[in-house]
Design a protein around this nucleic acid. Structure first.
Lengths: 127, 127
DNA sequence: AGTGTAGTTTGACGATCGCCGTACTACTCC
DNA sequence: GGAGTAGTACGGCGATCGTCAAACTACACT
């Protein structure tokens, strides 16, 4: 974090400022549910669940500003739902499936299934 | 709702002012998750899930004031998680298991299981 | 060095949230 | 009728939330 403005760039630091993640045992159910209760974040999580690997923030194209997008990704990371790392100029996101499944077996799957069902009923956006 | 201050109390109304509940199809996943993300409400739902029948509001004895308790029960009712009816001077609460299971199969059970697991790990109150 | 792309930070805004106390209503039982 | 019990309604309080725009940082590619 100490941005010393090192002009000669000693170590390239492998393209990453550090990002804080809660450890598995620190993840709390209420935080996960709260994170998932926000439609925009649910959308992100559902997209991430469909994809095998990592996705950069920019591929989501949410109908909100860039700063709001940053905010939502941060909430998801800080509550332990996603893992984020920098790769070059992009920031890659991945669902913390293993951790969530270990902590709350079946939860993520049923939430995802519920979201899909609701969308199928036409409740995808707003009534 | 038209409180006409009818001084002579015309009809006793069969021990029940009416309570608004969303119909099954109106229940939204994000509202349910939001309702459940609040520890006090989760506690109510878990207690309700353990009991076979209805429970009055007063048996819960939450560590908050009466008005806050009323508030939490109302949130749970309005988002479709519980059913409330008046019985005499008491207001009985029951989980809308059938509706939730029909709408979001397995969701309630995995949330309940997750809450139990987290509590078992010692995360019952606040890490 | 310069331009572009991706994401962050800050600070603000209005809305909602959880909480409370007080005053009130509805019902029961003596 | 009067007292007691169960819950509601009405503000009001401070905190958090989702949102934005503007200014900024970090990296890549000429």
């Amino acid at each position: 974090m100490q941005t010393q403005t090192t002009p000669t760039a000693p170590q390239p630091q492998t393209t990453g400022r550090s990002l804080e993640h809660p450890r598995r045992e620190e993840i709390r159910l209420e935080d996960v549910l709260h994170a998932l209760s926000e439609p925009m974040r649910m959308r992100v999580v559902r997209t991430l669940a469909e994809e095998p690997g990592e996705l950069s923030c920019s591929v989501f194209d949410l109908p909100v500003s860039k700063s709001t997008t940053t905010h939502h990704f941060r909430v998801l990371r800080e509550c332990g739902v996603i893992n984020q790392i920098y790769r070059g100029t992009a920031k890659m996101n991945a669902l913390r499936r293993d951790d969530l499944d270990a902590l709350f077996p079946g939860l993520l799957d049923s939430v995802l299934a519920a979201a899909a069902l609701q969308e199928g009923r036409g409740g995808g956006d707003r009534g």
